[in-house]
């Protein structure tokens, strides 16, 4: 997979922005993923020569962090909390329900490309478990009905 022209320009712009910043890789990768939705592996050579890092170092960095992805996600990301507090309030059934209605397992995207399902380990919303996060919005005390509404809302938008 090769970079499109706009992808390449975006990546080069971000590479330039953080060139003199200490610890640049973290904000750089966020910037690339925020702009493109993922970090294309074809960006590594550009980063490598600009920052004097090996491709292996960059690959090692990106794959260490759960937040970063190297392939495109669906239009929306639904994160389901799997941590203890949510488990104590029945998150397992919410996990299973999401998988069933979307027809996917974790790290997969629904056939229509609308939602990617991801596990998450704590959203800090533990007082109102179980919780999920649709894109940047946390929803507490979720039930299958609430999941239906959340999915419906993003499908309509």
């Amino acid at each position: 997979m090769n970079l499109s022209e706009t992808q390449r320009i975006t990546i080069e712009k971000h590479v330039e922005t953080f060139l003199t910043k200490p610890g640049a890789l973290l904000p750089l990768m966020h910037a690339i993923q925020d702009s493109l939705g993922y970090i294309p592996e074809d960006s590594y050579p550009i980063i490598s020569s600009a920052y004097n890092l090996s491709i292996a170092e960059i690959h090692g960095f990106v794959t260490f962090y759960h937040h970063f992805r190297t392939s495109p996600s669906g239009k929306n990301i639904l994160q389901v909390c799997r941590a203890e507090s949510c488990q104590s309030m029945g998150s397992e059934s919410i996990e299973n329900y999401c998988k069933k209605v979307l027809g996917v397992d974790y790290h997969e995207t629904s056939k229509d490309g609308v939602i990617t399902l991801e596990p998450v380990y704590c959203l800090g919303n533990c007082a109102c478990s179980p919780s999920v996060m649709m894109n940047d919005k946390v929803i507490g005390r979720v039930t299958p009905e609430k999941i239906d509404n959340i999915i419906k809302a993003v499908k309509q938008s």
Binding site: H30, F64, H66, H67
Partner: peptide, 8 residues
């Protein structure tokens, strides 16, 4: 503020 990337 530096934003982390989801590693516990």
């Amino acid at each position: 503020v530096t934003r982390a990337a989801g590693a516990y």
